[in-house]
Design a protein around this nucleic acid. Structure first.
Lengths: 227, 227
DNA sequence: GTCTATAGATGGATAGAC
DNA sequence: GTCTATCCATCTATAGAC
């Protein structure tokens, strides 16, 4: 972990020189963005506090001053990003329910689950890093993050219930297992896996458009639920 | 990383006290098994050489003496386990081809891809740790392992070609993307994800039988390929 | 081959000047 | 709030006695 990576933009921070009343927030945001980027690309354990502060262009003590510890910084990024993602998914599911008299079809439920993270991956956007961060935290996160993922079940609860209602003739365990398979499809959308697929297909699988990939994924998942 | 974990059995090592001519191999195997287990459960970066040698009951210098370095140990485990898995998959694919005049149907191809790793996960067997190790190395491995995963494409090549031949009416990129989705389903079979699904389904999704899970996965994947 | 002791490097965190 | 200097723990790897 030593090569310098460019820090492009911070979604909710300022790039201009810090005005007096916002110096604190600006520094904190710089640390937040640098950490998210480095963690997403290199993994949690491989990135040191020194790497983060160097990338952010701030002093070494900033992480502990603004976040308390490296682990607390990790957890704050994780909490903010998963909250954003889950909120978007919940809203889409809610809208689908409204549009179908409270009983959305399988396809609409799957879209609410799949579309938000895949849209984050769109190469034209600036959320790719955030999604890579979330996916990495599933396997590399610390104790606090694993514990939070346990409670995250309450978020999946809504999707499981909607799917159970949409396919009442299926045994419930079939629905749960298929939901598990769909989540696997989603979590596999990592840089390294896309690169590998790109190599295997000799360039045929360019991810040029999020909506096309969403359609592919929903088609595949829906077929598995409708058989 | 400090709690002591019991080391049950070593698949290819001896548990009896080491006979003179086999002392070296026995120690090496103890280190190999301890490292695989600790890495699979806790992740690569979190496990130190001290943890490994303590778990194996050997001295600290053993890792460097027998394997050269911690990274080389990691890579040797990775290489052996992936070779075993790929060999089993290739044999199943070959047998399926023989049974169908050189042109196996989609379902047989998917079974050759899915069944071997899922059988390793069977709770009654002793290969669960090895599969967790392989899955973890996909996202947490070192540089050498990532590079090896690039060449592993040659192994997937056979499966991609078989699927392309089995569904000639599909656009090739559709086949590649769907193969990517199936790989995602497989890579999601980690301890933590099973636990989470178990919580979500309130105990409905017990993984009591590898063959049942294989059937569920192949059913789901086949539906996605046949639509 | 095995072990102890330790070198040499790097990590997270903090004290204290400004 | 920011920064430098530093403490102290822990890591990998190895030297050298047995």
């Amino acid at each position: 972990m030593s090569e310098p990576l460019p820090l492009d933009v911070e979604p909710d921070g300022q790039d201009a020189e810090p005005a007096d009343p916002e110096v604190q927030a600006a520094t904190k945001n710089l640390v937040f963005a640098a950490a998210e980027r480095l963690f997403a690309v290199h993994g949690f354990q491989k990135v040191s506090v020194r790497d983060i502060t160097a990338e952010a262009g701030v002093n070494l003590a900033s992480v502990n001053y603004h976040f308390g510890s490296k682990d607390a910084l990790l957890f704050e990024i994780f909490r903010r990003r998963t909250a954003e993602l889950n909120r978007t998914r919940a809203r889409m599911l809610h809208e689908a329910a409204d549009a179908h008299g409270g009983h959305p079809p399988v396809r609409a439920i799957l879209e609410a689950l799949i579309a938000p993270p895949v849209r984050w991956m769109d190469p034209s956007g600036d959320r790719r890093i955030s999604l890579q961060f979330i996916i990495r935290s599933r396997s590399e996160g610390n104790e606090a993050m694993r514990e939070a993922l346990g409670k995250d079940v309450s978020h999946l609860r809504r999707f499981a219930d909607a799917l159970l209602a949409a396919r009442p003739e299926l045994a419930p365990e079939d629905v749960y297992w298929r939901l598990h398979f769909v989540l696997g499809m989603i979590h596999n959308n990592r840089f390294a896996e896309f690169d590998r697929l790109h190599t295997l297909s000799e360039g045929l699988t360019r991810e040029d458009d999020a909506e096309t990939l969403i359609r592919r994924m929903v088609d595949f998942a829906e077929a598995g639920f409708l058989r």
